[in-house]
């Protein structure tokens, strides 16, 4: 079990964020397996991509800042990158799938857009 030698408070904090992030990510991936159809499954990966990534990156930030004795926040870049790219891939997949379902004429997607809901 090799691990960096942190003070106890930092070790507990890093462990908490790390395990919580991994759990949220696992939950999202389980959703990918359990949810019934493609459009519902589209919601599952964003669990890992938002909260899961965020928690693990916070753990990494605390760990390296304590290790090197100065604030080290370059993990923000990964967070920024994932926040910007995940919506792009998911939106592209959603519209590609809608297009395919409509061309094939199967009933996974509605034939017409639903009418706008008015308040």
């Amino acid at each position: 079990m090799s691990a960096p030698d942190l003070p106890l408070w930092a070790a507990i904090l890093v462990s908490f964020f790390l395990v919580a992030g991994a759990l949220v990510t696992l939950l999202g991936s389980i959703g990918l397996w359990r949810l019934p159809d493609f459009y519902a499954r589209l919601h599952a990966p964003s669990l890992g991509a938002t909260l899961g990534t965020g928690l693990i990156l916070v753990a990494s930030m605390i760990c390296f800042s304590v290790l090197q004795g100065r604030p080290l926040v370059h993990e923000v870049l990964i967070g920024l990158f994932v926040t910007i790219t995940t919506p792009v891939t998911l939106m592209l997949l959603a519209s590609a799938s809608l297009y395919r379902d409509r061309v094939e004429g199967n009933d996974a997607a509605p034939k017409k857009d639903p009418p706008p809901t008015e308040l």
Partner: peptide
């Protein structure tokens, strides 16, 4: 102690 906690949680 802290190494063990961190190692196991990793």
């Amino acid at each position: 102690m802290s190494v063990a906690i961190l190692g196991w949680s990793i």
